[in-house]
Design a binder for these strands. Structure first.
Lengths: 228, 228
DNA sequence: CAATCGCTTGACGCGCCCTTCACGTGCGCG
DNA sequence: CGCGCACGTGAAGGGCGCGTCAAGCGATTG
């Protein structure tokens, strides 16, 4: 049986995650701040660690850095800030994956399962690349292609499309997109998202992948199976 | 399992490097001065040796020279002085690579891995040379050429271009470049990178290889496939 | 000791892109 | 069937990221 350590300062998040992860058959440990996380990680040697970035005493980034020097244990970060993401998954911190806040515990459980599977077997074949039908997003090169043809996207457009592509078929609210792409401290209009969606739609063209409006909720990226 | 010998008179540097290298799966030996390094190298026959230039009793340059007469063991030099670099990688000393102090241990680990990979292939053809389209960077001779024509680069410009060329097509942030080229403890402006990029661009000219700005992120080196 | 070189940084200006406003449109619900 | 609300989208403005120049400064060299 695999053991997961989850570190987050909010109790209801720890409880929710524990619930879902135990349902998946994992043993779950919890820590409510960075120092406790580090201690528990060293003492209990979990098979995977979930770290919130924002925590008291020692933040998740610091905990991650410290742990990385000591072991290869897979680490999954929770973050609300899009800015953190590249550093987290990049070489600097060496985390294995991240989940943007707010998240559904089911998604967390899915990622955990995926990471553990990958850690056991091989790894890194799709490093830094997200695919959705004819759409390919390579964020290391920061290039997006549809049907093999490059499309030029501006900063926000790229991040927006990447966020949607990572949740292919899943509806994302404007608030989720704002947090993922703009960061938690963005205080502008939610309608800003709409404008960027329009731009991205125009650039995506008609190649069997599109951003659909879910009226009253948000947007989702869908792949048309009928298209070649 | 490969064995690495690290020689540096500062204990915390030895410890830090040992940590990172062991994490990569190497057995690590340590020596705190030049004579000890030479002794250990002869007795234990490591697969690679990391030498600090400034050491008591016998400096790294001297150790390197001595070892070179006895074996082909790959040697990586650590130096704080930019001036040393030319001699280090030149024919006289024949070190396999260098890392400027201050360096990030992750950087060291990456170079070590690269050298060992190269040493296994025994491919002297790519020894110390990075290619990207018409651009060739021979960092052992510390020469850069475009379309076979040499271009004269200053220290920072050369290291900057090398860093970008080693990640051809991959976006590097200003922070990554600063850490790589300037060292981890550089507390200056990130805009410094921009100025050097401008200089390098000017010297690169228009030969089908260029440094592209990725707005809001950083820079990447791209090769124009259309150019001859 | 003076002269030179290379690195850094401040300043300035340009142009892109983000954001917002405004208005038009169509879907959905009463 | 018509009203209202949610969304699409064009246009404008200005913020700011970046390119570039040049001065200052520490280091090095003759």
């Amino acid at each position: 049986m695999k053991t997961i350590l989850i570190a987050d300062d909010e109790e209801h998040i720890r409880e929710l995650c524990t619930l879902y992860l135990e349902k998946e058959g994992y043993r779950v440990l919890a820590a409510e701040d960075g120092e406790a996380a580090l201690e528990t990680a060293r003492a209990r040697r979990p098979d995977l660690i979930v770290l919130d970035v924002m925590m008291p005493k020692m933040d998740g980034l610091e905990v991650c850095r410290t742990l990385r020097k000591e072991s290869e244990v897979p680490i999954l970060m929770l973050t609300a800030r899009a800015d953190d993401i590249d550093r987290i998954v990049g070489l600097e911190l060496g985390a294995d994956d991240y989940v943007g806040k707010p998240f559904h515990p089911r998604e967390l459980a899915a990622r955990v399962k995926a990471i553990l599977r990958r850690a056991e077997g091989e790894s890194r074949s799709t490093h830094g690349v997200v695919r959705a039908g004819p759409l390919t997003i390579d964020w290391q090169r920061r290039e997006a292609t549809v049907d093999g043809e490059a499309i030029s996207l501006r900063t926000k457009e790229f991040d927006l499309l990447r966020a949607l592509a990572e949740h292919e078929g899943i509806v994302m609210t404007r608030e989720q997109l704002l947090e993922r792409v703009w960061g938690y401290d963005f205080y502008g209009e939610t309608r800003t998202v709409d404008v960027h969606v329009t731009q991205v739609r125009r650039k995506l063209g008609d190649h069997g992948v599109s951003i659909q409006t879910v009226r009253g909720v948000g947007y989702k990226l869908v792949v048309d199976p009928a298209k070649p």
